[in-house]
Design a protein around this nucleic acid. Structure first.
Lengths: 232, 232
DNA sequence: ATCGAAACGTCAAATTGATGACGGTTCAAC
DNA sequence: GTTGAACCGTCATCAATTTGACGTTTCGAT
């Protein structure tokens, strides 16, 4: 699968991103310094680069500029991370050669979506757009959901929630994890709200006598039923 | 549909071009070496050749010259890719026999347009100048739009917007992506402007009880309805 | 049967998209 | 050079959808 290099000096953020990307199946490396990243990139070129704006050793913007002058990395997809504030920076970032630009703080879900979108353009053979399980289908590209053929309308949050759960069938997520992964890492929302959205999601995708793909794990959280696909 | 051979040693660029061309319906092959390309071209001749200037094995310029001496490839349309810099090279390139000449880095949209233009001249029967979906027709050459026969007038921006959406039916584009793809990568325009133009576009192409081919995806952006063609 | 957790219905608030109006610009015809 | 039409981008306003919080009811494990 696709290889991603993260250049980020904030250790916690680097780990978080690594964790999320790996759980989506990417092969990830993290590098905390700009100059070291430069060296590493001369040895091997990943499929995508996530680059912090401010870095020790060599700034993200400078590294980006350098990469664009070398033929091996001229077209390397780059996502730039930067602190909130300067909208003007966006122009600078893009004109420096970054392909996309994400403002901190961001939800991991959003970054994952951008990573996927970017890879779809550059390396379409490496990413799948369709999530399937049993008679349930989720198309990330068209943002459509189908249950045994019929079109099901989901609100944005419900869509992201189902997408998130389906990405790791069987795995149980606490409400807190769901809030982090689906809503964003820094939102202040009541944990009960997760229940409400799970309820809405269920109402939307389940008809009369259909099996519920979402499993409630009392005391822990929710999971996408891994036995759902087989109908066991 | 038309067959295109890309001779390009930079793998990422080759993939990018292949992807873009394939998504426009061309049949594509990529070959990283000049000498291998020569061999391959003796076996079968594509409808168009995209040729990098600098290549391992046999340079693009030399390959180009050779092709022009052989009767089967004498008239083969060739687009030459070259690094920024030497304007004098341009002369050499054209006098060597290339039909067009694109300077790296270039926007993929530009290259696609050139490919289309070139093929239209050489093999007009192979290029669909026409985008069709259901009763909607978009003619790129004459810049005309028809809805179930009747002529519909679209402003330039509306035309490009519809063209852009129709090129990837079903796929949802964020306002940002639309601004990048339709307006240009470096324009400073409010995202709401997209809404306004979508509105104008809708008003222009939809009559009384006609189905709207443009789908609004709340929270995400807009898409050309992939189920529009079939009328489902 | 009991107790805590989860589901559900309701409601007010916040987002987000649609639309009509307006001022400015470009461009072609005169 | 002037004039007028076409087109564009922004804004204010309106309408629809979505969202999050509560209070109550139901459910499930012990």
């Amino acid at each position: 699968m696709a290889r991603v290099l993260i250049v980020e000096d904030e250790e916690a953020l680097g780990l978080l991103l690594r964790y999320n990307l790996e759980s989506e199946g990417y092969e990830v490396e993290v590098c905390p310094r700009g100059d070291d990243a430069d060296t590493r990139l001369r040895e091997s070129v990943p499929d995508l680069l996530i680059l912090d704006w401010m870095l020790p050793g060599l700034s993200g913007i400078e590294l980006c500029r350098r990469l664009r002058t070398r033929p091996e990395t001229e077209r390397l997809p780059i996502i730039m991370l930067t602190a909130r504030g300067e909208e003007s920076e966006r122009i600078r970032g893009l004109s420096t050669g970054a392909d996309d630009y994400v403002v901190k703080p961001f939800s991991t879900a959003e970054l994952m979506a951008r990573v996927r979108a970017m890879l779809r353009r550059a390396r379409p053979e490496l990413v799948s757009t369709l999530l399937k399980a049993g008679d349930l289908e989720l198309d990330r590209e068209t943002k459509r959901c189908r249950r045994s053929g019929r079109e099901v309308h989901l609100g944005p949050t419900e869509f992201r929630l189902l997408e998130f759960l389906m990405q790791s069938p069987g795995r149980v997520f606490s409400r807190e994890q769901l809030l982090d992964g689906v809503w964003g890492m820094d939102v202040y929302v009541d944990e009960r709200t997760v229940d409400v959205h799970v309820g809405r999601l269920r109402k939307a995708i389940n008809r009369a006598r259909e099996r519920d793909p979402i499993r409630t794990v009392r005391g822990s959280g929710y999971a996408f039923d891994d036995r759902f696909a087989t109908g066991a």
